[in-house]
Design a protein around this nucleic acid. Structure first.
Lengths: 355, 355
DNA sequence: CTGAAAGCGCTTACAG
DNA sequence: CTGAAAGCGCTTACAG
């Protein structure tokens, strides 16, 4: 049914080995095929519309030309949830992959754990949630240990696992917070708050950002009121469940909490732009003027950040570049199995209307 | 190097055929394996960490358990560009795929044309741009003709190709425009405009929506001023290049054009929400109050549509459902090669602040 | 420069 | 209930 190498060989009156050699020019150039044979075979292949069978190539141990992508969510999620954040990464990754003849497999569930074992993917990009304090942490450690042993090409984006040295690309959160702190100083805000994730197990980067911000504010001689930093468990404030648009709700509930408890704030720094959106929603509903009464600063520079009203002042992550660099890392790792790298990416402050 | 079926067979002291039978329980149930053998083999497989080789399975003609997804952009684009629009579809598609043991391959470039031929994917979801008036139209027709001949499982989302009857799922644009027209009547807007794509080759759905709207307004006895309908080539207005955030620019340039040419409008219906965002940007910059001076209506209900200021009144497309239905169609088509379906999905009006 | 043949890791009639 | 063997479509030493 499928036109195979045999059909081409027969049509061109050569052996299947010859057809194979023509379709797989060896890099060393030691295998030679006469020009006539080559054109005859190529013509036959063209006429028969021959395309090599993917499975057979894989079985022979060839590259799948496929890169896996997974969000590696904690256990209660089974899907790779794509947001505009992951889209930006995927667009960069996809563009670079295309340039090198690779395609992207979006892996849902936990199958990513063994797809390199069975040759289904050549490499893996992991975008994951922090597993600090998470029951699955031990399991993740085992996975990473195995990946390292087998020298698999994989890379972790914007994440880190306590106690493990992983190949990764991360945004420089400290530098991001420096940019924010400088902006705060230049605008003269005094009472600074932070809203990350209002849940017992916030993602690592929110915690990192909150801590950096405190340190920097102190360095700049600004007062730090811990009661204005909402991340993790907050006494008197119910945890926001991690389902649906929870980031928006973190922001909304966070500002509501500060307002109701009469804790005045000049400027709210948010763990990401979606949280900022929730803050702005509450402010809009309660006629709190931004930035007049309250300045809001986000993180990420999400799609459309400049189209909100007010447009969001935020720290831009070059996520498309993350995708491109991830692919380049994987390619290099495939060529040099002992290669290892951890990159820290410098972010940029996008000053807009909200602060 | 790779633990194969042979290793398991040896460890469990059985033949490889037996191992295979245990791992591939036949649906008819006619092949029986004793309980002891089964547990012994399973234990051995577990101990050795056996996972069947993907390539070998494929070679045996088995399903790849992979669904392709492509944006099938016109020739100047080579990548599947993922936006929040495609993310919504992919999330529904991915969730349903996961439930049925499938993964998603994001196909960049034109390789989607032959991936079903080589068994790299079992089915294909195509999200594409209208190719009316496009040089590649003939080529696309050939592709679809071949797909139909081979009874391949594929489906086209929110698109149509003139002169071809394709398996597809489309939003009911006429119904969407009816909802909008009814809303316009109830709010009493009189001077109605439309902004789609300001380019010689606008996508089909913008044209469809513009035409439906005109027809409906006339039915409702409202005046229709053609000079307020901006879609396609507009005399006196330069085409907006199709690169980057062009939709935003269509909206921005569109309202700018109407304003400068003193063509007053009550209500602007936009071909999608991103265009509405561009309109709102211009209005914000020029202190045109929305909805006070100008009502704005979008289409799609994009991610965060309710978080813009004002929140966007729009027609919601259940894109996650499009993804789920697409997968269900493909599954059915795989089981029944002669199955064919075209679905029209009923949209919903989301009344918010902008109109 | 070209061909014959082994073998990649599986599944599946077929035989027992 | 279990096994021996053919074969899926390729690539790759090896021989000529």
């Amino acid at each position: 049914m499928h036109i195979g190498i045999k059909d081409v060989a027969q049509a061109a009156q050569v052996s299947i080995g010859t057809v194979s050699k023509i379709f797989n020019p060896d890099p060393s150039g030691s295998i030679k095929i006469s020009a006539e044979t080559r054109t005859r075979v190529l013509a036959a292949a063209q006429r028969l519309n021959y395309t090599p069978n993917y499975g057979a190539k894989l079985l022979r141990g060839q590259s799948t030309k496929t890169i896996g992508f997974t969000a590696a969510l904690p256990e209660e999620h089974i899907c790779s949830w794509l947001s505009d954040y992951s889209s930006r990464i995927l667009n960069g990754l996809g563009e670079e992959a295309q340039r090198h003849g690779y395609q992207l497999l979006i892996i849902n569930g936990r199958d990513y754990q063994y797809y390199m074992d069975i040759n289904r993917i050549d490499g893996l990009v992991m975008l994951g949630y922090s597993l600090d304090n998470n029951p699955r942490q031990a399991e993740m450690h085992d996975i990473f240990r195995r990946f390292a042993e087998k020298k698999y090409p994989y890379i972790v984006l914007n994440n880190s696992y306590r106690g493990l040295d992983l190949p990764q690309i991360n945004i420089d959160n400290v530098r991001g917070m420096e940019l924010i702190a400088e902006h705060i100083v230049s605008r003269g805000y005094r009472r600074i708050g932070f809203i990350g994730e209002i849940t017992p197990n916030p993602q690592r980067h929110h915690t990192d950002r909150a801590e950096s911000l405190k340190t920097l504010l102190r360095q700049y001689g600004l007062p730090v009121d811990e009661s204005l930093f909402l991340n993790g468990v907050i006494p008197g404030l119910d945890a926001v469940p991690r389902s649906g648009n929870y980031s928006h709700r973190d922001g909304y509930c966070g500002l509501e909490f500060l307002t109701r408890n009469r804790r005045p704030v000049d400027c709210l720094v948010c763990g990401n732009d979606t949280i900022a959106l929730g803050v702005m929603k509450y402010a809009h509903e309660h006629r709190i003027a931004i930035p007049g009464e309250l300045a809001v600063i986000g993180f990420d520079d999400m799609v459309n950040a400049e189209y909100f009203t007010p447009s969001i002042t935020t720290v831009r992550q070059p996520l498309e570049d993350f995708g491109r660099m991830a692919l380049q890392y994987l390619l290099r790792k495939m060529a040099e199995p002992d290669y290892f790298e951890q990159k820290l990416i410098t972010p940029e402050l996008m000053v807009r209307e909200s602060a």
